[in-house]
Each structure stands twice: as structure tokens, then as C-alpha cells.
């Protein structure tokens, strides 16, 4: 793309940063998961998410037109320049928190990719159609674990419910439209996130019921990530994620 497009750049950062930050958090389980199969599963999930972020941030860099590539955007931005939803940056917590976050964000992702796969922007549509296939098996994995944990032992039920209670106040932000997105959504380039909130809730409720878990009602919804106002956790995560690239700028291997 030759003409810089600030609103599209921001929209691509929101898409890419969600996957980059959640992907990095997921990679923290590598070598630490409760069983080998889940260690492998989470490494695969992280790989998919970081792969999606790579494609989205590469395109974001091209749209920005300032010569930044995906590595510059991933490793040389400060926390206030990140546009991920707060949910993605929270510490990985126990296994229930990890699974519940993958489930809540994964269902959102499936619906978002599904909507974006008919974007009028061919690059976004192509990335979305590919990511949709991946998000579908991510949700299958997380959803089956939600049911297994929720409808499992007293201990696993307690932890799964605690995880849902912890994460629920961060779900509202996923569906809060951003002011600079209205024009792009109207033009069919992006998708209005609020348009699939009802469908999201329906899917969540169905699985929560099967998992014998309860959705907390009336929670105050946190926000700020889309505007660069993050929790204290993101800075610590970025310090670890960015240290090698910043210590050896321009290194190739």
C-alpha cells in the first residue's frame, strides 16, 4: 500500500497485538504445562497466534508507510503503543486461567475472523480466512477443557469458576467499538466488534452450562488496552519479550 492510512494501521495493531501478546503469554507454558500433550498443544497455539501476529503486523507496517516491519513493531514499541485488549496481557495464572482466557478470546476470534474473511481489503480477508481455520481448533481445544475442568473434580471446578470470575470483567473491552474504526467498518474493511457480541455470548453460555459454571452478572467492565492504557503486567512481559531484539538490534540468525 502506497498511501499511509492511520485508521487502518490502528485497526491492524488491535488485531495483531491481541495475538502477539496472547501468543507470548501462551509460550510461557512451554516446558511447564501439567501434562506433555498440553505442553505441545499450548506451544502449537502460541505458534499459530504469533504467526497470525506476524502477518498482521507485517501488513500494519506496510500500511503505516514509515518503514517499520513486523519485528520493529513487535520489539521496538513501548507498552503505551500496544493496542491489545487487557485480557491478553494478564499473567498466565494457573491452567484454568489459561484455558478460560483461550476460550473467551478464542470464541471472539472465530467470530472476528469469520466477519473479516469477507473484508473488502484482500490482504485482511486472506489472513482472516486462514486464521479462522486455526481459531476453530483453538476453541475446540479450550472449550473441551472448560467442560472437563468445570464438570470435573471439586478442585478443578473451583479453579475454573475462579478463572471465569477473574477474566469476565475483561471481556467487555473486546466488544467496545473504537472511534477510529467506524468509517472502516462501514466501508467493509474491518468488522464492527459489537455486531457479534450476542453470538459470542450465546456460545459462551452454551459451554458454561455444559461445564456447570456460572457467568458473573453485573461486573464492571475494564477497558484501556485499545487506547494504550495497560495494566502493570504488560511492561514486565514486554521487557522479557523484547530484551534480545533490543540488546542486539538488527541481528540476523
Amino acid at each position: 500500500m502506497s498511501t499511509p492510512h492511520p485508521a487502518l494501521f490502528e485497526a491492524l495493531l488491535r488485531l495483531g497485538d491481541d495475538r502477539l501478546v496472547l501468543g507470548h503469554r501462551t509460550s510461557e507454558w512451554c516446558g511447564h504445562a501439567p501434562i506433555l500433550e498440553e505442553d505441545i498443544a499450548l506451544a502449537n497455539l502460541a505458534l499459530d497466534l504469533i504467526g497470525q501476529a506476524n502477518l498482521l503486523l507485517e501488513y500494519a507496517g506496510a500500511v503505516e508507510g514509515a518503514g517499520r516491519d513486523q519485528d520493529a513493531l513487535a520489539y521496538f514499541r513501548e507498552a503505551i503503543e500496544f493496542r491489545n485488549a487487557l485480557m491478553c496481557e494478564l499473567p498466565k495464572g494457573d491452567y484454568a486461567v489459561t484455558i478460560a482466557r483461550h476460550f473467551l478470546h478464542g470464541v471472539f476470534s472465530v467470530l472476528q475472523w469469520d466477519a473479516l474473511s469477507s473484508s473488502t481489503d484482500a490482504t485482511i480477508a486472506g489472513i482472516a480466512a486462514k486464521a479462522l481455520k486455526e481459531s476453530r481448533y483453538h476453541v475446540r481445544h479450550a472449550g473441551e477443557w472448560m467442560i472437563r475442568l468445570g464438570d470435573g473434580t471439586d478442585e478443578s471446578h473451583r479453579r475454573a469458576q475462579d478463572a471465569v470470575n477473574l477474566l469476565w470483567p475483561f471481556t467487555g473491552e473486546l466488544f467496545m467499538p473504537c472511534s477510529d474504526d467506524a468509517e472502516l467498518a462501514a466501508a467493509g474493511v474491518t468488522a464492527d466488534v459489537s455486531s457479534f457480541e450476542a453470538k459470542w455470548r450465546e456460545t459462551i453460555d452454551d459451554v458454561m452450562l455444559r461445564a456447570t459454571l456460572t457467568v458473573p452478572e453485573g461486573a464492571w467492565m475494564q477497558r484501556g488496552g485499545r487506547e494504550g492504557r495497560h495494566t502493570e503486567h504488560l511492561g514486565h512481559m514486554l521487557a522479557e519479550m523484547q530484551i534480545v531484539a533490543r540488546s542486539h538490534p538488527g541481528a540476523q540468525w
Binding site: 500433550e37 505441545i40 498443544a41 506451544a43 502449537n44 497455539l45 505458534l47 499459530d48 481448533y137 481445544h141
Partner: peptide, 13 residues
């Protein structure tokens, strides 16, 4: 099926 995820992105166990 033991796991939908395997040694590479394209394989299950």
C-alpha cells in the same frame, strides 16, 4: 485421538 496437537502444526497425536 490423544491430542489435536502434535510435533508440528500440521499433525495430531
Amino acid at each position: 485421538l490423544r491430542s489435536e496437537f502434535g510435533s508440528t502444526a500440521c499433525k495430531s497425536l
